[in-house]
């Protein structure tokens, strides 16, 4: 014990810089948020202890459940598209044509662009009445599509932008995954008379499973807490159709001044994310087990 305690003394200098930063700017404020979730804090008056009121309000709020549903659709939709399209793009980027360098540059380019710039250019690009896309569609007699203004379509519009911005990283991860797979298995399968699709579905894609796992969870955990695009594209509308949980929190905290309630929502989101991380841990553990 004393030896390992002394070793702790040796290790601490290495850990302290990071732990001090986390302590000050993650754990101390987190503690504050948890405490505030039991109060009616609104910054304007001194906070009162209200017990579980904020949590009761949350579970009874139709908006909370609606935003949870929308968040799930958004997260699952974006994640599924990033896995499927990311993989397809990975295959395509692995080909050797004259266009491939262009493709690699184009797919990853949106990753380096900020969310605010992304929102500005897509608001312009997909503007309902007279944006370039709807004007082009009008040439084929298609009436204007309300990408961000039609309650039935707006969430899809936001998903399209999120995938455009985000799929570059999964695509590159798949590309490097593909480059790491030895060709011999595939060649052997072709010798045995398998066609391209069979090779892909029975050999290559299963071999990419570790990449898929990583892409799946990075994407899911990321999209569950993201709301930047919604803040700038739709402000949760129309008719609340894009009200993601993150935006619902932002709205309650910074527009309605209901810090207590917003803190309770934040704690719920935190629990949700921790649950996702725990699932990831379990799944990857099982995978290791079976290997």
């Amino acid at each position: 014990m004393s030896v390992s305690l002394r070793r702790l003394g040796q290790a601490l200098p290495y850990l302290l810089p990071a732990l001090v930063v986390f302590g000050l700017f993650t754990y101390y404020p987190l503690w504050n948020v948890i405490y505030m979730s039991f109060t009616d804090a609104d910054f304007l008056r001194a906070p009162n202890w209200v017990g579980l009121d904020n949590y009761t309000k949350m579970f009874n709020a139709q908006e909370f459940w609606a935003s949870l549903t929308i968040t799930t659709i958004f997260a699952v939709g974006v994640t599924a598209l990033e896995v499927v399209l990311g993989m397809m793009l990975g295959f395509l980027m692995n080909a050797k044509t004259r266009v491939t360098p262009l493709l690699r540059a184009a797919v990853f380019a949106p990753v380096v662009i900020s969310v605010s710039a992304t929102a500005i250019l897509w608001l312009f690009f997909l503007n309902t009445q007279a944006g370039p896309v709807n004007r082009a569609l009008a040439l084929f007699g298609i009436p204007p599509i309300g990408w961000f203004t039609d309650p039935k379509i707006a969430l899809l519009g936001v998903i399209v932008v999120a995938v455009w911005k985000g799929v570059g990283l999964p695509a590159v991860l798949y590309l490097s995954g593909l480059q790491g797979i030895s060709r011999e298995l595939e060649e052997a399968a072709i010798v045995d008379g398998a066609n391209r699709w069979q090779v892909a579905s029975r050999i290559t894609i299963p071999l990419l499973a570790p990449t898929t796992m990583v892409v799946f969870f990075i994407s899911l955990v990321g999209t569950f807490q993201s709301y930047g695009l919604v803040l700038l594209l739709t402000r949760g509308g129309p008719v609340g159709s894009t009200e993601l949980l993150g935006y619902y929190i932002f709205e309650n905290a910074f527009q309605f001044f209901q810090m207590g309630y917003a803190s309770a929502l934040s704690v719920a989101l935190f629990v949700l994310l921790a649950l996702l991380a725990w699932m990831q841990f379990k799944v990857s553990e099982r995978r290791v087990h079976y290997q």
Binding site: F25, Q225, F270
Partner: peptide, 14 residues
């Protein structure tokens, strides 16, 4: 831990 804590939640305390 910070990986799982949505950073924007901590805006005001920070």
């Amino acid at each position: 831990g910070p990986l799982m804590i949505p950073g924007d939640v901590l805006l005001i305390p920070n």
